[in-house]
């Protein structure tokens, strides 16, 4: 018999930072903001962790990828 006990979820609901803060916008040139959504190894933080909404996560992804071609953001962790 399958035990379908619903897991208790203690995490509070995260809000999309770009939706709550109107001052914040996504721009590939603004690598300092992009860095907030990258891991130490320069991977894009998944939506389930950052709490971004789908729309902003999509825009963020393209911005990060643009910044990567311009060497503003790394593809892999920086050497130092």
């Amino acid at each position: 018999m399958a035990t379908n006990i619903p897991k208790k979820n203690f995490s509070r609901k995260k809000a999309c930072k770009f939706c709550t803060d109107k001052e914040m916008s996504i721009d590939y040139k603004d690598y300092k903001t992009l860095n907030l959504f990258l891991t130490e190894r320069s991977k894009i933080v998944p939506r389930r962790i950052s709490g971004n909404c789908a729309y902003h996560q999509r825009n963020l992804t393209t911005a990060v990828k643009r910044a990567r071609t311009l060497a503003l953001v790394g593809f892999v962790a920086s050497g130092d």
Binding site: R68, A71, L72, G74, F75, V76, S78
Partner: peptide, 14 residues
């Protein structure tokens, strides 16, 4: 300073 080397240079003039 660039995030990675391009043409063996560490810096770039943007």
């Amino acid at each position: 300073r660039m995030a990675y080397q391009i043409n063996k240079e560490l810096k770039g003039h943007y």
